[in-house]
């Protein structure tokens, strides 16, 4: 009998720093070498946000999560890109992403047959854990997104009133796309946001030095300077 707990294969292996693969190195500049930052490493108020969509009896929770893991990025609304692995979501994956004007990423912290969880890197707009799951209810299958987050730094905290409605639209859009792929059109979606802790963690204000928004702008404007020079043709 093995001493290994039955959840062992579901968790990412311990790493101190995140590293992206060569295929996505060019887009992974805000993750490479970063540590993860859970809600306790963030700055702003602590929020628990839940988005729920009712799928009815058309698909089982296991089949839904298998498909969600396999095609995660393709269910995102237009304007955002997820650079995950070709084989889908797996524990330990480090994936860059482009959310509107910000380039950042995630670590796949945990994945099993009915759920998977991301944790964010330092500099991401949120210090967060995001869990995607499906469960059986009396009405059929329910898809659910749980986000436990603090904004990472004072700049993102100041922008929370803009970020929150944008996030609401983003995750509702994701759930609609996922539902449509399973033959469910116009699913009932409910979203709630609960403030778990209204205190800000002021000692983490320095997180601003890794702000992915600022670093994305800087990366973009200095791109031309980083282009490799063409060598002169040899006579």
């Amino acid at each position: 009998m093995s001493d290994e707990p039955r959840d062992a294969v579901s968790w990412a292996k311990k790493v101190d720093r995140l590293h992206v693969t060569d295929e996505v190195k060019a887009i992974g500049y805000n993750i490479e070498g970063r540590r993860v930052a859970g809600p306790q490493q963030g700055f702003g108020r602590l929020w628990h946000r839940i988005s729920i969509a009712e799928f009815g009896p058309t698909v089982s929770p296991q089949a839904l999560v298998a498909d969600w893991r396999a095609h995660f990025g393709s269910y995102w609304p237009a304007g955002s890109r997820f650079h995950g692995g070709l084989t889908g979501i797996a524990p330990g994956d480090v994936a860059p992403l482009e959310a509107g004007p910000v380039t950042t990423g995630i670590l796949v912290l945990y994945a099993d047959d009915v759920s998977f969880t991301f944790i964010t890197p330092e500099g991401h707009m949120f210090a967060a854990m995001i869990t995607f799951s499906a469960e059986e209810t009396e009405a059929g299958t329910r898809a659910r997104i749980d986000i436990l987050l603090r904004t990472s730094d004072p700049i993102f905290e100041a922008g929370w009133f803009v970020i929150k409605p944008s996030e609401d639209r983003f995750w509702a859009g994701t759930l609609r796309n996922l539902a449509a792929a399973h033959g469910v059109h116009h699913p009932a979606i409910t979203q709630t946001t609960e403030c778990v802790d209204d205190r800000r963690i002021w000692k983490h204000w320095r997180n601003v030095v890794r702000n992915s928004g600022i670093r994305t702008v800087w990366h973009t404007v200095t791109r031309a300077l980083r282009r490799p020079r063409r060598s002169s043709p040899v006579a």
Partner: peptide, 21 residues
């Protein structure tokens, strides 16, 4: 403890906040 999933870790974050209060 026999098993813990990511929901368990999230719950501990919430407990931590309650303790800090």
């Amino acid at each position: 403890m026999d098993y813990m999933n990511s929901g368990g870790i999230g719950m501990l974050v919430t407990l931590l906040v309650r303790g800090q209060r």
